[in-house]
């Protein structure tokens, strides 16, 4: 017996080259439809919420001016044009409501209707599950979070983040 045939016999014996044919597989049950979506409730963004706790007895003052107490958003204000003012998005008639660009009242719990009145493309994507975090299950109930979960409505752009450590690329690239 030659050396190579010895080796071949050894390989056969140890099963190394046994033919691997695709076998009949037992599949798991098919998934249910993936259309069930719930929008998650979220807590108040500021401690003084609801606004009516202070504003119930006050006449609203629609004049743009500098606010020093209570209203100063944590991260400052940077949203849209610089002349933005509370009543562009908050309702003058009912301080516990928001308003779309057309003046339709919107509940604080549904900020997407307000945001979507300018960012319509994002609203369409969000409704389709293409914008925003996906939680839950890809084939079961999904939990969708509204705009203000991730975006500060007064400063919606994401803050820069500290990145995780870089990979060890030594020896992997020349």
């Amino acid at each position: 017996m030659t050396r190579s045939s010895c080796l071949l016999a050894l390989l056969c014996a140890s099963g190394c080259n046994q033919g691997i044919e695709p076998m009949k597989r037992d599949f798991a049950d098919p998934p249910p439809a993936s259309s069930v979506v719930m929008v998650e409730d979220h807590p108040a963004l500021i401690p003084t919420f609801p606004c009516s706790s202070c504003h119930a007895d006050r006449e609203p003052d629609p004049r743009p001016r500098k606010l020093v107490e209570y209203h100063t958003p944590k991260n400052g204000f940077d949203h849209g044009t610089k002349d933005g003012w509370c009543y562009r998005c908050h309702s003058l008639e009912n301080i516990d409501r928001l308003r779309t660009t057309l003046g339709t009242p919107v509940a604080f719990s549904d900020p997407q209707d307000l945001c979507g009145s300018c960012h319509g493309d994002k609203l369409i994507d969000w409704k389709a599950g293409l914008h925003g975090l996906n939680r839950g299950s890809w084939n079961g109930p999904k939990l969708r979070q509204s705009c203000t979960f991730c975006h500060d409505p007064h400063k919606p752009a994401f803050e820069p983040m500290v990145p995780e450590r870089p990979p060890d690329v030594l020896g992997e690239r020349t």
Binding site: A128, G129, L130, N134, R135, C150
Partner: peptide, 30 residues
């Protein structure tokens, strides 16, 4: 039925995952 770990960790929600044969899945709509 769960999402991959990378998807759940993404703070900007950039990742989408699902069954391409399901017409209601995010990836199909994408």
């Amino acid at each position: 039925g769960r999402y991959p770990a990378c998807l759940e960790a993404c703070p900007t929600g950039a990742r989408k995952f699902g069954n391409i044969n399901d017409e209601n899945s995010e990836v199909r709509r994408m």
